[in-house]
């Protein structure tokens, strides 16, 4: 009986160690891309903060809107001033969960398809979002990759009629983050 207790304790301890294992980065890449008849709009943010709890599958993202870099300076200004209103809503955030986290083996190298569900907050508006992606485990680090589409209108971002040909109503978001174990 004592043996059973010992095993139970060991299992509990080891599992709580796994529960505690978190991965993070402060230099994640988030790009957005909008294809429109007149011009493509592309911006990249190389300073996304991301944390994944390998035990629970909980996942959070935060990006500073002003850290999105555009090819054209004026686009960047308009993005911040007129569309996402970065002074009022400085951050975009995602808080959610890898729904099939149990299928990811964080200790074995490999690529694992995942589904992520949670709440996206942009421009002060929070919406439920589901996205498919993959988690690549490689040498103790993990690489999270996902691509999904957001509708500008969902986040109460108004596109004035004079530029509606220039700006697509849907924006493709690509996430590529390399996370390191958090000590």
């Amino acid at each position: 009986m004592k043996k059973v207790l010992a095993i139970v304790v060991i299992v509990m301890m080891s599992s709580s160690l796994t529960f505690a294992q978190k991965y993070f980065t402060k230099n994640g890449n988030v790009t957005f891309f909008s294809k429109a008849p007149l011009e493509d709009i592309k911006a990249v943010n190389k300073k996304a903060v991301c944390v994944i709890d390998a035990g629970t599958g909980a996942m959070e993202f935060a990006v500073l809107m002003k850290a999105f870099e555009f090819e054209k300076a004026l686009m960047q200004e308009h993005f911040n001033e007129n569309y996402v209103e970065s002074d009022t809503y400085p951050k975009g955030a995602f808080k959610g969960k890898i729904t099939n986290v149990s299928s990811v083996n964080f200790t074995t190298d490999g690529s694992y398809p995942v589904t992520i569900a949670g709440k996206m907050t942009i421009h002060g508006i929070t919406k439920d979002v589901t996205a498919k992606g993959s988690i690549v485990v490689a040498g103790g680090k993990i690489n999270g990759i996902s691509e999904f589409t957001l509708l500008v209108a969902d986040y109460d971002i108004e596109i004035p009629s004079v530029v509606k040909d220039k700006i697509s109503k849907s924006i493709k978001i690509t996430v590529n983050v390399w996370l390191e174990p958090k000590s």
Binding site: K22, F24, K26, V49, V51, I52, D53, T56, A58, M59, E60, A62, K95, K182
Partner: peptide
Amino acid sequence: RAQETSLLDEV
């Protein structure tokens, strides 16, 4: 308990 606070707080 962990879920009540933001994971981001830690980084």
